[in-house]
Design a protein around this nucleic acid. Structure first.
Length: 910
DNA sequence: GAGCACTGC
């Protein structure tokens, strides 16, 4: 088992070691578990007793000591002592809650991941034990619910040492769960109670006698209506098979495993099995067009295994998303009757659930890309399947070039590219006219409606349309999904909808409004998966997240205004921006298809048929053409690909972007003047970060502050979702944020302070709530930091701390970010030193009022103005000291204070 | 004094 970092190790190992009864490792594991159990019991009995902390961790013990010292110091003052005692009790209470959440997650994980696998007696005992403890403690803690302070709701992902993915995933793939197991321990009990309540409300208000009344009041609902024209029908395919699959009597007598096997045979792909295997045998590269529901992702690797391909090497299957890789692997392991992590495994960042035995490996596309670094010919694979290739993520696009290349000198390697219909020809052309194999999916027909005339205000039009559907269509026949561009728009729409339905009271059926976007706390996201109460209707207001990332059952109507936010990158200025842009035809069809999953659907497009055919692009511009390529170029260089301008990209990125990336890497000394990778560059390539961040880490070795710098790098790389700023508590949130800026240390150091303070509280969730910080983001930062710490060793950098000397930390930052320097102008704006342009400090920065003369910034963003985000003050002489090849003295001489002699020319040299 | 689609390593 490959283990990525310490934090992950325990979790991963505990999952897979359970089936091996011999070996000291699992003995040790069991003993530790035993200790933890005892620990937990003690907590229940002696809630208020001190000193019951877990002693296995060195750091904790140290904290324990500090606490003792503080206590004895405080003895002089009785009042203080009492206070400390109280805070201690408070702490224990919180700790108990945390332990409880951990336990709950453990149980859910095990139930999900090892479902359908026969447990040993010991394992069964352990699971039962955990459940008992959980129920016991839960009952007890529920009595202590005090909530006077501000609190964000608890998330499913409150789990020590883990990212949220498993919990999100648990909700998203509920249909794979065993209903019997659900009964035993139901983590959704609260929601169900709430649903019952809603159902109660619904039946009270909306009996059948209301139906007529509703119709009578129809005209009260709308001031103006939108006219639609039904223009097309996306045909359903193989729909009748869906019903034949549903015959429960046939499978009644079978075991769960037999049922899985017979279910496999009802998939559309099953009848193509032999033909498919023959085609794969005859051709090295095959493009597979398999529509949603065809079963390609789960079945093809199994077919290949059954046909003996795994004797020559493992089968890898890439997915664009972590959740998909995990859930598909879990499903396939069930179908094959093996434990997840053995013959079938998955590999995603922070979590490698594979072993030597693994022959079917599901992974994220980025993960296969990293594997190329260690195994450039993919020698251990006999088949590579790039799934969901039509999504054209940055990683799949690079993978295309790489696998096409290695396929030439590895004729035994089979390549499968699976895509949606639209792009198949293009994929085939790219892979030297590889044959296309079509597998029908299962989809219900979808009626497409266009507006008669263009709508000026699409948000208002969307709301009106939603209400129109709600009132004219019988309740209970299906939910509505509206695609909007962002959080703010969703919030506005939610308010408007509430406002408009409130006045109508019981004249219309109840309308449940469910917002969903990636930054929404996880437990609020779960709301959209709850079944709609009878007599009511759900309207889901979603961003693009609902286009591919998650699937909501029961959607019958889709409202598509035709816009989404898209990131664009200007290689000339290095400026990023998010723009609301019209979607592509492919996107529009994907959206429409979301309504035909469980029955015939309808899609209302808030634009005309003319717009669709003439104004929308066929496909979304692939990510590789609108992003900063520095990281990509470094990765390719480290794979020995030197001629990037002639690299075989399916859609080449603008050469300007490639040149900009090369130029930057040269400035960072990652490439020499021949464009070859240097030793520094090789070390930088080990880090899964933007090269400027990697350089900053590599440089921290010299300044003896790698400990601080990796924290900063982790915090910077999670982006701007750290501080939580609810609309109604903006002042509090801002004050909390200002605390970290004490001493005007700059944004980088402030981020470091946030991380270290959180660490000092032992990664407390409560602390995050109190400081208006998003726990989810912090946990992510911790995972990334752990990973970076593990990688330090590989590039031979020692973990050294130098927290007191902020200047050396800033110098290390400058070593990576010196190309991003800017100088204050007279009018309070800034001017970037290289490639001069006018920019401003972002108002969220701690330095926004201070305006230091010289700054370095993390990134440029274009919103209402050109802003620098994450800014730190800088001594200009550092630039010359650290990057003499990039800056000369005259670049940094202060024109504001002294006049340049005539004839010296401009201070800025390019 | 602003405003952040979505992934992934």
């Amino acid at each position: 088992m490959v283990v990525k970092n310490g934090g992950q190790e325990r979790r991963v190992r505990s999952r897979t070691s359970q089936d091996e009864d011999d070996g000291s490792e699992s003995d040790e594991e069991r003993m530790r578990d035993q200790r933890e159990k005892e620990e937990l019991e003690r907590h229940i009995r002696e809630r208020d007793a001190a000193g019951t902390r877990k002693m296995t961790d060195q750091k904790l013990t140290k904290k324990e000591e500090e606490e003792a010292i503080r206590r004895s110091n405080a003895l002089e003052n009785d009042g203080l002592d009492t206070l400390r005692k109280m805070s201690r009790q408070e702490y224990l209470k919180k700790r108990e809650q945390k332990k409880l959440e951990e336990l709950r997650d453990d149980i859910e994980d095990e139930q999900y991941l090892f479902e359908g696998v026969k447990l040993t007696e010991a394992e069964y005992r352990e699971l039962r034990y955990k459940k008992e403890i959980y129920e016991l403690v839960k009952k007890r803690t529920e009595e202590f619910d005090n909530a006077n302070e501000y609190r964000m709701p608890d998330a499913y992902d409150d789990q020590e040492g883990g990212v949220n993915q498993e919990k999100r995933f648990a909700v998203a793939v509920q249909r794979y769960r065993d209903p019997a197991a659900e009964e035993k321990m139901n983590p959704f009990a609260e929601q169900e109670a709430w649903e019952e309540h809603q159902i109660g409300k619904a039946t009270l208000k909306f009996g059948s006698k209301d139906k007529k009344q509703k119709h009578d009041n129809y005209e009260f609902v709308f001031e103006d209506q939108i006219e639609f024209i039904k223009a097309a029908v996306m045909d359903g395919v193989n729909v009748e098979q869906e019903s034949s699959k549903q015959s429960p009597e046939a499978s009644l007598a079978k075991t769960a495993f037999e049922k899985l096997q017979s279910d496999r045979k009802t998939l559309p792909i099953y009848s193509y099995r032999e033909e498919l295997l023959k085609a794969i045998n005859e051709h090295q590269v095959l493009v597979i067009v398999g529509e949603t529901g065809s079963g390609k992702t789960t079945q093809i690797p199994q077919y290949l295994h059954e046909a003996g391909y795994t004797e020559r090497g493992k089968i890898g299957c890439t997915q664009p998303r972590r959740v998909a890789a995990m859930s598909v692997a879990a499903r396939v392991s069930q179908e094959m009757g093996v434990k997840l992590g053995h013959e079938v495994g998955y590999s995603i960042r922070f979590e490698d659930c594979t072993s030597e035995k693994t022959i079917l490996k599901y992974m994220t596309d980025g993960m296969l890309l990293r594997e190329f670094l260690g195994e450039p010919d993919l020698a251990s694979y006999s088949v590579v399947m790039v799934d969901e290739a039509h999504e054209r993520t940055l990683s799949t696009d690079i993978l295309f070039g790489l696998v096409k290349d290695i396929a030439r000198f590895r004729p035994d390697l089979k390549l499968l590219i699976s895509s949606a219909t639209l792009d198949a020809e293009k994929f085939s052309d790219y892979f030297d006219s590889a044959p296309i194999f079509k597998i029908p999916g299962r989809r219900f027909p979808v009626e497409i409606h266009y507006t008669k005339a263009p709508e000026a205000d699409y948000l208002d039009a969307a709301i009106v349309t939603a209400l129109q559907i709600h009132v004219t269509q019988p309740p209970g026949d299906g939910d509505i999904l509206v695609f909007l561009t962002g959080q703010e728009e969703i919030e506005t729409a939610e308010e408007t909808l509430k406002h408009r339905t409130r006045g109508l009271g019981t004249k219309i059926a109840e309308l449940l409004i469910c917002p969903i976007y990636a930054n929404l706390p996880t437990e609020l996201q779960a709301k959209i998966f709850e079944p709609t109460p009878e007599g009511a209707r759900k309207v889901v207001l979603a961003t693009n997240i609902a286009e591919t990332s998650l699937t909501i059952d029961g959607i019958k109507y889709v409202i598509d205004p035709g816009f989404s936010k898209m990131k664009s990158y200007n290689p000339r200025t290095g400026m990023e921006s998010l723009l609301v842009t019209p979607i592509s035809k492919a996107s529009a069809n994907q959206r429409a298809g979301r309504s035909g999953r469980t029955g015939p659907g309808k899609c209302f497009r808030l634009y005309t048929a003319y717009n669709y055919y003439n104004d929308l692009d066929d496909n979304t511009v692939p990510e590789i053409q609108r992003t900063n390529l520095a990281h990509v170029v470094l990765a390719l260089k480290s794979l020995g690909i030197n001629d990037l301008l002639n690299f075989d990209f399916m859609d080449p990125p603008p050469s300007e972007a490639l040149l900009k990336a090369l130029e930057l890497l040269y400035a960072l000394s990652a490439l020499n003047k021949h464009g070859e990778l240097t030793k520094v560059g090789r070390r930088m390539a080990e880090f899964p970060l933007d090269p400027m961040l990697s350089k900053m880490i590599v440089a921290s070795d010299k300044y003896q502050c790698s400990d601080e710098v990796i924290s900063i790098a982790a915090m910077l790389s999670i982006g701007n979702s750290i501080f939580y700023r609810p609309k109604d508590k903006q002042v509090h949130a801002d004050n909390a944020r200002l605390n970290f800026h004490m001493g005007n240390v700059g944004d980088h150091i402030a981020l470091l302070k946030v991380y270290s303070s959180w660490k000092e509280t032992n990664f407390s969730t409560q602390w995050c709530y109190e400081n208006y910080i998003q726990v989810r983001s912090m946990k992510r930062a911790r995972d990334i930091r752990d990973q970076l710490e593990g990688l330090l060793e590989r590039v031979e950098i020692e973990l050294t701390s130098n927290a007191n000397d902020l200047d050396v930390i800033k110098k290390a930052i400058t070593s990576g970010f010196f190309p991003h320097s800017a100088k204050l102008q007279k009018n309070g704006s800034y001017r970037t030193v290289k490639h001069p342009q006018t920019v401003h400090i972002h108002p969220s920065s701690g330095l926004a009022q201070l305006l230091p003369r010289w700054v370095i910034y993390h990134e440029l963003v274009l919103t209402t103005k050109e802003y620098m985000r994450q800014v730190t003050e800088l001594k200009p002489e550092w630039l010359v000291e650290i990057a003499p090849h990039y800056y000369q003295l005259k670049d940094v001489e202060d024109l504001a204070s002294k006049k340049m002699p005539r004839g010296e020319g401009r201070a800025v040299k390019d």
